[in-house]
Structures are given as C-alpha cells and as structure tokens.
C-alpha cells in the first residue's frame, strides 16, 4: 500500500498524524494546515483500491515552478527534524472497502514502527447528548498503550475525554451499557477499536461540528493539537501561525461573474 517516492524512508519513532474522513472534512483541513505551515516534504503515496481516485496540481504550491506537480489521493509527508509524519487522504473511502482500508492502515502503522499515532476527526454536533452540549467542543480518546505513554500529559492539559453514550438515548434501561459512539466520524471508531485490539499507541482528537464552512473548525482542531504536540511555536496567536494552502481558494465554487451586471 505505501509506495515511496524515492528511497524508502524510515518512520521509526516518528509521530504519525492522519485524518479520518468525517463530517465537515475537518481532519483533512487540519492536516492541510500542518503540511502547508511546516513545509513538509512528500515521501510516498498510499496506493490502494480503497479510495476513490483523484489527482490534482500541487495543493501546497509556493511558486509557479512547483504549482504543476501532480498530487494523488493519499500521500505521506514528513518533517524529519520534528520526527513527524502526516498521511493526507483527499477522497472518500469506497464504502464496501472501509474495513479493508482500516486493516491496511493498522498493519502499515505497526510495520512502520511509529512511536504514536494521532487520528484527527470530527463528529456531528447535532447528535450530542445533554452532557456534551455543555462546555468545549473538543474531545479525545486514547488506547490503553497511549494512556500509559501520554495519558498524564493530556490530563494536565485539561482535555476532555469522549463520553460513552446510552445506546438508546431517552430510554431508561439499567441493563444497557453506555458505548462509544462517534456519529459522522467515518472510520474513527473502527480505527480506535482496532488500535486498542492491536495495542497501538493511538489517540483520537476530534471536534463536534456541522457541515458548512469548516475552516474555523480546522483551526480549532489544529490549535488544540498544537497545545499537546507543539508543532508550531506559540509566539504567534490565532490563525496567523498557520499558513493556508493555495488549494483552499474557491472552496465553495466560483463567485458570480461580474458580466451579469
């Protein structure tokens, strides 16, 4: 599945960040901000039949010379200095292959010996229960292996763990066990569950949101992640510390032609 661009890179002890295709595409937007801001270099492709094919010109172009470079559906970028690797996924997972894709991801993560994996995701804001309606929109989940490694750091940050919810909201049933539910999260729950089963050091960081202009949600998520991983210095505040990629223009289509007036 992973095909290197040139020589096979070593990911041993790297932190891997990947998005889940989820409501508002917030994880993918957040990954775009990271790759663009840190000037990360592409080191390979995820070549798989599990994703809808798409290609385009360089979404992180900085000059006319590199604007025409071809980029594909799923690519891996690294920042060797920060020991950071990022997998960007740009198109939907073919529905009948979602389990296969999760398994491919998990086996690649294990084989590459990443020290930890962070899945950036989102969940439908409208499906929050009464408790979740209060306070922060951000949540996290950690596998037992990650809890041992970074649980204390996340507690110190005051992050809120994703609550388990009743399987039948509104119905009082003492026998119904609360369960993990991430509506709109795509493969997030499945990936987290498999991460627990495979003893991966994996965390999920997600934001509750709705479909619309999800750029502010992306900034919220990436700033929250930055509080933990310190990817970008905190000398600049707000959106200025992140560089918006060139691919974000015309996100909602062309504006109206002036010739109609």
């Amino acid at each position: 599945m992973f095909v290197p661009e040139a020589t096979t890179p070593s990911f041993k002890d790297f932190t891997l960040i990947l998005p889940a295709i989820a409501v508002g595409n917030v994880g993918q937007l957040a990954v775009d901000l990271m790759v663009s801001t840190l000037g990360m270099k592409r080191v390979g492709y995820m070549h798989t039949d599990c994703l809808v094919p798409m290609v385009g010109p360089n979404p992180y172009s900085t000059s006319a010379e590199n604007a025409g470079e071809l980029h594909t559906t799923a690519e891996v970028y690294t920042d060797a200095e920060k020991k950071l690797a990022v997998l960007q996924i740009r198109s939907p997972i073919i529905q009948s292959r979602s389990r296969k894709f999760r398994k491919l991801l998990v086996s690649w993560i294990k084989a590459s010996e990443f020290s930890q994996t962070v899945v950036l995701s989102s969940s439908h804001a409208y499906q929050r229960d009464d408790q979740q309606l209060k306070g922060t929109l951000l949540r996290y989940l950690v596998t037992p292996a990650m809890q041992k490694a970074s649980g204390a750091a996340l507690s110190e940050l005051g992050w809120m763990e994703m609550e388990k919810v009743s399987p039948f909201p509104g119905l009082v049933d003492a026998s119904a066990e609360p369960r993990l539910s991430i509506p709109g999260g795509g493969i997030t729950k499945g990936l987290f569950t498999e991460g627990c089963d495979e003893e991966l050091c994996l965390a999920v960081v997600l934001v509750f949101c709705s479909e619309g202009d999800n750029i502010p949600d992306a900034f919220t998520l990436v700033n929250h992640l930055n509080d933990w991983l310190l990817l970008v210095g905190n000398d600049k505040q707000g959106p200025e510390k992140w560089k918006i990629p060139s691919s974000w223009k015309l996100l909602f289509g062309n504006s109206h032609p002036l010739s109609i007036f």
């Binding site: 809808v52 798409m54 385009g56 604007a67």
Partner: peptide, 19 residues
C-alpha cells in the same frame, strides 16, 4: 490550476503512472 482536480479513469491512470 488549483483548486481543480481530475477524477475517474484519468485520475486512476495518472495515480498509477505517478507511482
């Protein structure tokens, strides 16, 4: 130019050939 993309068979062929 950005932000346009190709999909379908052209995308599948370009992806295969790039890799």
């Amino acid at each position: 130019e950005q932000p346009n993309i190709f999909t379908g068979i052209p995308a599948a062929v370009l992806s295969h050939c790039q890799v």
